[in-house]
Design a protein around this nucleic acid. Structure first.
Length: 195
DNA sequence: ATTGCCGGGCA
DNA sequence: TGCCCGGCAAT
């Protein structure tokens, strides 16, 4: 083991390049691969790694796209988390792509876990699940009125699907019941945190 | 188990 | 009319 110490010095310190180049490469590859179903004429290992990457780049834009609303006027949760993830994302995206693209095989037991990282990282990217309407404070619902649908059917339980989001009770707590909105105090539909 | 809310009751 | 709880459904 001590034969070549300063020998292994393949391009180092050029992470920036890697990231940019790989990114472009992947994009181009995805297009070409898209039309070609049967791939990996030599090794089927090349297929898997390329799959997750394009999936997030083209397919569905809901895979951690940019965040138009990083901060909310209410409740400053933890914007730091998002920031942290973002940085990590770019950092982790490099290693996985490098392996298949460079055909570099240091040890056939390292890359295996390599691409397990990328997918995992993305999982945490999804931004807030809460959908905010673009139109300030206006409530509008798409009501497809069709002759087929029967409106108000007496007996049918018209129980609302239960709105989403914290209500007075959860926000203030039982201890501060006085702070709840009137409706909540009377166990009626909340009027303050209407969904 | 907890939380949100309708239906119903009381002053 | 204002106030509140029983009890159910959804989480």
């Amino acid at each position: 083991m001590g034969g070549r110490a300063g020998d292994s010095d393949y391009s180092d310190g050029e992470e920036d390049f890697y990231y940019t180049e790989i990114k472009l490469n992947t994009d181009a590859m995805s297009e070409g691969l898209s039309g070609l179903a049967p791939v990996s004429p030599s090794q089927s290992l090349t297929s898997p790694p390329a799959f997750p990457v394009p999936d997030c780049s083209r397919t569905e834009a809901s895979c951690a796209k940019t965040d138009p609303k990083p901060m909310t006027p209410l409740s400053r949760s933890a914007p730091t988390t998002l920031y942290l993830v973002h940085t990590d994302h770019a950092y982790q995206a490099t290693p996985p792509v490098t392996i298949p693209g460079s055909k570099f095989t240091p040890n056939g037991s390292n890359f295996s876990i390599s691409w397990q990282s990328p997918p995992v990282t993305f999982t945490g990217i999804p931004m807030s699940p809460t959908h905010h309407h673009p139109a300030g404070s206006g409530e509008q619902r798409q009501h497809a009125h069709t002759v087929l649908s029967s409106p108000p059917r007496g007996t049918v339980s018209l129980r609302k699907p239960r709105g989403e989001g914290k209500k007075c009770r959860k926000v203030y707590g039982m201890e501060n019941r006085d702070m709840w909105c009137t409706a909540c105090r009377w166990k009626k539909a909340c009027q303050r945190f209407i969904d």
